[in-house]
Write a protein that binds this DNA or RNA. Structure first.
Length: 830
RNA sequence: GCUGGGAUGGCGGAAUUGGUAGACGCGCAGGACUCAAAAUCCUGUAUGGGCAACCAUGUGAGGGUUCGAUUCCCUCUCUCAGCACCA
């Protein structure tokens, strides 16, 4: 079997495609129905080059794109670079090489690799987030949000990574550690820039139901937004306050109120204490002199603990009584106030009510400090009554719903009913209100780093923060900076950048030296692709309208709650501000699964199991790696790389190539020739299956069908040219180089991608004879070839005349016969 | 703990609305070609039994519904991913 020379033909066609600009869209199209926007997540151009995982998603979308083009669609399939980010900057700190240089080289390498894979991107629309012509609009968008009160500056407890020397968004903290460098994240109280994403929490939640996304991602977003309905209950009390001049102090009773958030207001009568987070501002006010020392000591100790330490000590609860009591809002009973680090300042109100009988943590806490355990919910079944018998028993707590007991007039209600009744009661007495809480926090976007888009704000000593005049954008990153690690951004030390005058009063001012989170850059890049070279607006509205929203978006699942949520927020905000006529930016989303190393483990340098696409292309060719990655299994599954596997698809490509040489291909004049008829049938079946499977993202079975088709064609000595060409056409999106080469070898002077996608003849899909399964009592006993529309009676007769069936039916009574036309007949006997 | 996925030969994986389990590829075994090897081609390949026709068993485990279950229902085990002292 002759083998084609991929080293020769692949670069040849890549060059021709580049000259012809095959990826370029037809701008002139007026009919928006023809416009399709397919997008893959743009990569961070790392020094390591393209990963085989990139190859998988890019190839999948390239196949869809090339097929859509053959169907006459005007497809936008762009590529660009998420080029700002920490690795390049860290490298600069280590070596002094400027991030722009490192990034530029990496981009060149990525582009080379993508071209070597035969990916048909529209290179005329390439964007790079670190390019001033791009980040000018990132800054413009920041100012737009700022003007509309969606970007704000605030002091808040934030996540700080000592390794990266910057704050991080909540979404970038993974298991208490930095997403990038795994340093344990600590909490700091800092003033930072935020985007008001929480304003959109409910709409972002509702919008999830309208998009065609994997359930996994949708549920991750729902969880991340974490909407919870509950009641904010007020625990009020009086505290002693010293007033008057020194020497003549007298006690004065001042009222205080502690709002606590609970989703279990039905357990309100079981409250035996209230706990504040150690950082809670009321702690200063409410701690009595006797307890002051213990409280301060506890607080200091809590502050030193990292988030990780606080969560690791899960079972061990600790706390300190602060000396003051609050009144229970309904019973008026005195409730002691404690502090404990199991209560988090940044969720809810930073205070909780302690109900030991019906909450695991409260139960442990109460057990440790001898606080009363009052049962107020009876489990719905008697089975559990033992568990909580005797409210002073420490044997366990019941956290499920049940019937209220020891709850005054609310006794006998179900938890569900009680939640409503108690909320109404509290609201009418002005001691509580129904509220909705979210896990989602506002998006912290400022970073104390160099290699990012500068935040376009100027700090004036007199006027405070002033937005940069949009006409002055972009605020360019200075290039002449020193990367020696000083613990602060090099931007602070760049006088030309840092020292400016106030746009309002012309007084001395300094430029904001923080840069934006790189997720801001990537939250709107899909819009820029629609009009990438515009210098007047981020994209011409007509262009956005023509292409956006994105019809299909493919990328890794690791962005589920970062990029994908931020982008949605941007789209909603831009929609409300009148810039977009849609809210959801990505109508259909698909994830590619991880490609694991040959050892079944995640690819990593340290493990030494990384597969380099360049080497595979060199050895087997771009068409082979494309086809292999599509053949490995379902796109969204994690699957291990197998070098043997790629040999198999290369053999298949060689067969296709060989068919063109080995067989004398002629026009099929002899229609009556049954061999030709057989080939036609298999080819038309293949066209149908490949067409359907591509649309369903089932690339693996599409390829399998083409293999079946080729294996069948190999049985014949002659292959009709027409069917062979059809096969090449449907193979073309998968193996574009080989398809072009064969196409041209067949004498065509045009590209195969100028051909229309083949259509199949439905008449050729039906066979005169199909195998019919004959079952006796549901067990397969024989298979016969019969016409698919043979009536039941004839099939039954034929079945009962079959030797192996007779054996099982003989001497028994036929109770029933089940007949599935064209498939099987099942004879039920007794 | 909560949420969402998975579990099929030696391996990656196929199987319309429940309808012939294991397509396709890899690997392996035997054969052809070759001085030989590689490449290529042919044959076989779920497990157990049988020379074979064929029989029995078989889709994580156990139940159920059905003429028939990888597919639907219940219980459970393991596993992957995300979230989590979230009140």
């Amino acid at each position: 079997m002759p083998s084609y020379n991929h080293l020769e033909i692949e670069p040849k066609w890549q060059k021709k495609w580049e000259e012809k600009k095959v990826g370029k869209v037809r701008e002139e199209t007026k009919d928006a129905d023809d416009a399709v926007y397919y997008l893959t997540m743009f990569p961070y151009p790392s020094g390591a080059g393209l990963h085989v995982g990139h190859v998988e998603s890019y190839t999948a979308v390239d196949i869809l794109t090339r097929k859509a083009r053959m169907l006459g669609k005007n497809v936008l399939f762009p590529m660009g670079w998420d080029a700002f980010g920490l690795p390049a900057e860290n490298y600069a700190v280590k070596t002094g090489v400027h991030p722009a240089e490192t990034t530029g080289k990496a981009i060149e390498n990525f582009r080379r690799q993508m071209k070597a894979l035969g990916l048909s991107f529209d290179w005329s629309r390439e964007v790079s987030t670190c390019d001033p012509s791009y980040y000018k609009w990132t800054q413009w968008l920041f100012l737009l949000l700022y003007k509309n009160d969606l970007a704000y500056r605030a002091k808040a407890p934030v996540n700080w990574c000592d390794g990266c020397q910057t704050v991080l968004a909540n979404e970038q903290v993974v298991d208490g550690s930095c997403e990038r460098c795994s340093t344990v994240v600590i909490q700091k109280e800092l003033e930072q820039w935020f985007f008001r994403i929480t304003k959109y929490a409910d709409r972002l939640l509702a919008g999830i139901e309208t998009v065609d996304w994997p359930e996994r991602i949708k549920s991750m977003q729902r969880n991340w937004i974490g909407r919870k309905e509950g009641v904010e209950v007020e625990f009020r009390g009086l505290r002693a306050e010293m007033v008057g001049e020194i020497g003549s102090e007298r006690l004065h009773e001042a009222e205080f109120s502690i709002p606590v958030f609970t989703t279990r207001v039905d357990t309100l009568f079981g409250v035996s204490y209230v706990v504040l987070a150690p950082e809670h501002p009321l702690v200063d006010v409410l701690t009595t002199p006797d307890n002051y020392e213990a409280v301060v000591a506890y607080r200091d100790q809590a502050r030193k603990k990292s988030e990780l330490e606080r969560t690791q000590l899960e079972k061990d609860k600790s706390g300190v009584f602060i000396g003051t009591y609050a009144k229970h809002p309904l019973t008026g009973e005195d409730v002691p106030i404690w502090i404990s680090d199991y209560v988090l300042m940044n969720y809810g109100t930073g205070a909780v009510m302690g109900v030991p009988a019906h909450d695991e943590r409260d139960f442990v806490f109460a057990g440790k400090y001898g606080l009363p355990v009052r049962q107020v919910i009876a489990p719905p079944s008697d089975i559990f009554s033992e568990l909580v018998e005797g409210s002073d028993s420490l044997s366990g707590c019941w956290t499920g719903p049940g019937i209220l007991v020891h709850s005054q007039e609310f006794n006998g209600l179900t938890s569900q009913e009680a939640k409503t009744m108690l909320a109404i009661e509290l609201e009418s007495k002005g001691k509580g209100k129904r509220v909705v809480n979210y896990h989602l926090r506002d998006w912290l976007v400022s970073r104390q780093r160099y290699w990012g888009a500068p935040i376009p704000i100027i700090w004036c000593e007199n006027c405070g923060p002033q937005p940069v005049d949009p006409k002055q954008l972009p605020v360019e990153l200075p290039r002449d900076v020193d990367f020696k690690p000083t613990g602060r951004s090099p931007l602070v030390d760049s006088a030309t950048f840092h020292d400016v005058t106030c746009p309002k009063c012309d007084g001395p001012a300094r430029r904001e030296s923080d840069t934006m989170d790189t997720f801001v850059d990537s939250s709107w890049y899909y819009l820029r692709y629609t009009d990438p070279n515009n210098t007047e607006v981020f994209a011409e509205p007509e262009m956005v309208k023509y292409w956006a929203p994105v019809d299909l978006y493919v990328g890794g699942a690791e962005h589920a709650v970062m990029h994908l949520l931020y982008s949605r927020f941007f789209a909603y905000a831009l929609h409300d501000l009148g810039y977009l006529d849609f809210e959801e930016p990505f109508l259909k989303l698909r994830n590619q699964g991880l490609i694991l190393g040959p050892d079944g483990e995640k690819m990593s340098k340290s493990r030494g199991n990384v597969v380099n696409p360049d080497e595979v292309i060199e050895l087997y060719g771009a068409d082979s790696i494309r086809l292999y990655e599509m053949f490995m299994g379902p796109l969204e599954d994690a699957k291990p790389w197998s070098t043997n596997g790629i040999v198999g698809v290369r053999r298949f490509l060689d067969k296709v190539w060989g068919m063109r040489m080995k067989f004398e291909i002629r026009n099929s004049k002899s229609e009556e020739n049954s061999k030709v008829e057989n080939i036609k049938k298999i080819v038309h079946k293949t066209i149908k299956k490949v067409t359907d499977d591509i649309d369903a993202f089932k690339f693996n079975t599409a390829i399998s069908q083409m293999m079946i088709c080729v294996n069948a064609m190999m049985e014949f000595e002659e292959v009709p040219r027409e069917e062979y060409e059809m096969l090449i056409a449907i193979l073309a999106p998968f193996a574009p180089h080989l398809a072009e080469e064969i196409w041209s070898d067949l004498g065509h002077t045009t590209s195969i991608f100028d051909e229309a996608w083949p259509t199949y003849d439905p008449g050729l899909l039906v066979d005169e004879l199909v195998p019919i399964a004959i079952q006796v009592n549901g067990k397969l006993r024989a298979t016969v070839e019969l016409s698919p529309d043979l009536p039941e009676k004839d099939v039954q007769d034929r079945a009962l005349a079959t030797e192996n069936v007779i054996k099982f039916v003989e001497g028994k009574e036929i109770v029933k016969v089940i007949f599935v036309p064209g498939r099987l007949i099942n004879i039920v006997v007794k």
